[in-house]
Write a protein that binds this DNA or RNA. Sequence first.
DNA 1: TTTAATGT
Length: 310
Amino acid sequence: MLRKRLLYLAQLSAVGFGGYYIGQNKEKYCDFLYGNSVTVDGKRILNKPGLPVFGTVSAATPFVETNGSKDRISQIMKYGFPGLDNVRSYDDFVLSYDRRNRVPHWVFEHITKDHIAKNDAVDRSKCEFHPDESIHPFFRSQNTDYKRSGFDRGHMAAAGNHRLHQKHVDQTFFLSNMAPQVGEGFNRSAWNRLEKHVRKLTKVYDNVYCCTGPLYLPRRESDGKSYVRYQVIGANCVAVPTHFYKIVVGESSDGTLDMEAYVMPNQKIPDETPVSSFMVPPETVEKAAGLLFFDKIHRSKLNRINGKKV
DNA sequence: TTTAATGT
């Protein structure tokens, strides 16, 4: 049974990332992206989202007081930490900003029927893209960075998920919520279809929780070595991600939870490609992004992952 | 329908 599940996950991996290499070899180019188990004290543990194998609080967390060492920490860090995670809370979504790449690390949304219902008081065409003044000017992206770059200012928290108030949609137009996306064939089609799929989940689930962000995946080059290679645009060198991920949890009225995870390459994707072909095991995204998603979810509440009973 | 850029 376990063997069968591992095989299933391996197949999903091949399908999901195959999109990046359509018609090319499907050879693994970075083993850690595909691993679905970890070794702790010599024991192999199958990764499962929602199972914080290592605990959620790092031993290096600067705010944990142990044996009166707090004073030492404040001595060392007297003149400030170089960075924490730059979390920004807006009225209807939350994000963590990647100051190095001038795009989000992750964007979190809670979506219900109400949030996406038709609302004449809300008009997307009134919205304008604005630089986010809450980001330090060194790390802030500007409209000029995107202008004539060939890339769309692609929403991470989708405008269509925030139709409760005009103010909510407006806030999704901060450039801190954007990443450069291929326009035709991606943002305006395949990625848009994925966003619509997520909105449709509110027909099935009372509550939908959605985390979205960029990935910079390594690929094998002709010398046989793996490199992470991505374009940067504009005077502020805004990173063009190689891929984007979306991890969704649907919560039913009885409290049971279903999870779906997707990775799509930031490139023109044939229109007929079904959204489901971009499904990947959630832990694959976690390893690639360096993030843990929904790690407060208790295993007993998790019903399905990517449509498969767990 | 929703996703956007470009040129005037």
